[in-house]
Nucleic acid binder design. Structure first.
Lengths: 379, 379
DNA sequence: CCTTTAAACTCGTCACGCGAGCATATTGTA
DNA sequence: TACAATATGCTCGCGTGACGAGTTTAAAGG
């Protein structure tokens, strides 16, 4: 509710900055046209952004056409950076991203069942090594339920109730990996430019996020997107989350094992990969298990289409493989799960484009959103 | 993506206008303080808004304190209006709302099983009678699935595939009654000032909406919020929507009749009212049916809390009565349906505050949102 | 009747975007 | 090689809207 002149005055520069971030490699002339700015205004804004060490310009690749060449907008060499912490079930990585979203290369560290108390000090140290005037915010992606800055529970990591606020004193955004992958798909992946997109990542269980106009809908404390704990499954089956009938239990390696008459696997993710590989190699039982799981996934996708009316659905993680080996079963179940009137105009259900980079890219975007505000310009 | 001076220049006035709309009866001094405006700026803005015939000022009730009295912001007598069409299963009403959200009184017309082809010309006529320079937009609330401006299906009305765009040539917003009631609760009712609120209305089936920062999350074409068609129920039970296992079938008069061993009622809404009345009068079978339905409602509420993480849940329609006659069963089922870590900090589940006015108020707000843009100021 | 208080009004200043006109860099053609 | 065509950047005067300081106004209190 702040409408003072200070805030309003920065709007033009902020819009240019966000445009350069969202569309890396855009030229100044193109950006000005998109924002409806005159060339004079664009000159003024770029002058201020360069003076503020936020953006710079580089010679554009020749277009071959006539006319004075324009310049591409690039992040300023002294411009703001965000740090990205990407924690998976087996690894952790700390890297940085600049305006434009490009992630710097960084070493991948093994994690292997270590407790949070062993890993977080190392992460904190890696973040401290990046500290400096350019670093403005930190984004963390983690495979578990997140509430504010707290990791409620990460089953794969066997971490519980971990406060991630201790990692840094900078502005911090913590997010569930599946949700952040959805943010990434909407901004840089398969759902770019779509007004309302639903993303689902299947790993062990299923999570995701609804994206509206590029912003994630994650609820009061960022704990939304736990679609795997909607009771789309058998109500008599208890879920480790404490509820019953969770969709989670129907769509991953645990479900595949049940369909194959096997014991619950210790590593459901690895079991699912093996089953999918077997299905690809022609094993009929594995293929049937994949179809059954794909159908359970598709059924839930249909239900969520009813509830949130997305223009596109992106599937990540095992969802990519399930689309590949059991696409027809998945799509058929989706069609059966939606209200009848939708069946002749279903939103496309497509594989995610960013693969395992999704969570890190989403964390970078979320952290950068904290930076690209008028406060960042004044500072 | 438009950041031209024209657009930016109106921002201060627009903020003041929206503030006056959102908070009827607010004083100029209070509004200026909220927006962070100096008294000089407020004077300038109010001068322009008065000249544009958008807002006026009226003497404020005396505060008893010292100092020069301020004025309350009121809608200009020649200011913009929106028309509201409220269609229920049994009635239709056409009225108007001004800035501030107050609905004018209007006659209620019976509907009684008439087809859309009989009713819509009357509605169109009633809207035409309101036409004039003050009328800027129309909002329609209707009990059925809405996709863009088309009513896909309204089971109660027995209307299908009706294009409501024919009602007017003005800007038009069509919405599902349950979703619009949620909009109303968030802006004027039990969820005011809450960042993320979930509203559910139970009538025949259950619908609703998620509200984030005062804006409804309704998907790509406004067809979201059909939470009743999430498969939280018995998968073997077919739903008229074409899918199976819909939650709709577990939470209304149809479900109560099943629990009582009765045939499916012709009017599930009336049957539910009778059953609830009987439960209030001490009928143990009716009370048990109410508890069973309340539990099915509560279970789904818990599931949706997992998925969208609302700060508050408002229940409208029969939900108000179920909270009254079977609140403990409902709350217990909610607690059982959420992930265990949530159980000691569940969001409040409260009755809606606006009753049967909800859809109309929501339609007025949605239509007014079309008007309170910079385009409306320049015109 | 004067003081205190809170808010409205007045006016000079400043920042930003606009638009017009000019300058510049590239391609295409004579 | 020179010049036209084209697209873009740069400069400058103008208008708008918010700010802030100072002044005025309308109430309550003594």
């Amino acid at each position: 509710m702040d409408h003072r002149a200070e805030t309003l005055r920065a709007q033009g520069a902020l819009a240019m900055l966000r445009c350069a971030h969202r569309t890396p490699g855009i030229t100044r002339a193109e950006a000005a046209a998109r924002l409806g700015l005159s060339s004079g205004s664009a000159a003024g804004i770029m002058g201020r952004l360069r003076a503020a060490r936020l953006l710079a310009e580089a010679p554009a690749p020749q277009t071959g056409g006539r006319g004075r060449p324009t310049a591409v907008l690039v992040p300023h060499p002294d411009g703001p950076l965000v740090a990205v912490v990407d924690i998976t079930h087996a690894t952790w990585t700390v890297t940085t991203a600049a305006i434009g979203g490009a992630l710097a290369a960084a070493p991948v560290h093994r994690l292997l069942g270590q407790p949070a108390s062993a890993v977080l000090p190392l992460v904190r140290e890696a973040l401290a090594a990046l500290h400096g005037p350019r670093l403005r915010a930190v984004g963390v992606a983690i495979p578990g339920t997140v509430h504010g800055r707290t990791l409620i529970e990460a089953t794969n990591l066997r971490w519980r109730g971990v406060d991630l606020g201790v990692l840094t004193s900078l502005p911090l955004a913590v997010g569930n990996d599946a949700s952040l992958a959805g943010v990434a798909e909407a901004l840089r992946g398969a759902a770019q430019g779509v007004g309302v997109a639903l993303h689902l990542t299947v790993e062990v269980g299923v999570g995701g996020v609804l994206i509206v106009d590029g912003r994630p809908v994650l609820g009061a404390a960022g704990a939304g997107g736990e679609f795997g704990h909607l009771p789309f499954g058998d109500p008599s089956r208890r879920c480790p989350c404490g509820a019953g009938g969770c969709w989670d239990l129907e769509v991953d390696g645990r479900a595949m094992a049940r369909h194959l008459g096997r014991r619950a696997p210790a590593d459901p993710r690895a079991f699912a990969e093996r089953t999918i590989a077997a299905a690809r190699d022609g094993d009929p039982a594995a293929a049937a298990a994949c179809r059954a799981v794909a159908a359970a996934l598709g059924r839930g996708v249909g239900a969520l289409i009813n509830a949130v009316d997305p223009a596109v659905v992106t599937l990540g993680g095992l969802g990519v493989d399930l689309l590949d080996v059991a696409g027809p079963a998945l799509h058929a179940a989706t069609a059966e799960g939606v209200m009848a009137w939708r069946r002749d105009a279903l939103p496309p259900v497509v594989p995610a484009a960013l693969g395992s980079q999704g969570p890190a890219i989403g964390a970078a975007e979320t952290a950068m959103a904290l930076v690209l505000t008028e406060a960042a310009l004044t500072a």
